[in-house]
Amino acid sequence: MQRRLIPCLLICLLSCCDLRGQNPQQTARWTIRLLHCVDNVPAVYDTLAYSNASGNRYAVCRIQYFISRITLHARGTEVPAGEPQHYADSGLSPTLLWQTDVPAGRYDSLSFTFGLSPELNQSYIFRNPPENLMFWPEALGGGYHCMKLDLKYINRNGQIAHFNCHLGNGQEKNPDGQVTGRVGNHFRVTLPLQLTAEAGKTAETRLVMRIEKWFDAVHRIDFNRFERGIMDNLDAMRLFRENGRQVFDILTL
């Protein structure tokens, strides 16, 4: 009996040593919580409660977008974090919380691509919803939407109207309407961060999208100008892309 017990105990001890060898203390859990605010308070959806700088009274109905190539930075060192891309949807609360393991340490900035980075933004890479529903039609350049931000507003005639702020690949065209080039409307965002990711613990970062800045950060937007959408409007998408660089902020707990 004792002869059988000794090898079992040895195996158990060796197993314990193996677990310790993995040294989980070297990594920390990092959580990004995605928040959507209007005028510094969490967005209330489907309510005509907001006014933009152009005086349009509007409601935020939903927001869906990709962020990709999320990277932590520490004194010039880049640490890619988690999956290559993440889909966020205001109507799907699990998508607003994103977790990954990162090396323990102190980080001083965070960067990511808003939308899918070009190497990822290939048509048909997503087979399942909800990601595949973000497709950007081939006729408009292919790939996937960076963002669908859907609003309702009161138009110049006092009627309820719709505005779809949809960003994706733009197409340059010659005077005959033939496509001559493609313009990606994704953009890189870099934000300062004070993150101490302690080994074996969870650190949380709150990434805040300030929705109103899509409409006034650089260019003041009047929704009445875009009643037929912007997906085939290169100039309009440029305006939003340039505004978009300033819509994100970081809150570290």
Binding site: P137, A139, L140
Partner: peptide, 25 residues
């Protein structure tokens, strides 16, 4: 197909495209 998958016809947002071969969301 072109009309279906651009904002001219604007059918694709609800009914899909070749990327959503069920032709419904």
């Amino acid at each position: 197909l072109q009309l279906f998958t651009t904002e001219t016809g604007d059918c694709f947002h609800c009914h899909g495209s070749p990327a959503v071969p069920l032709w419904t969301t």
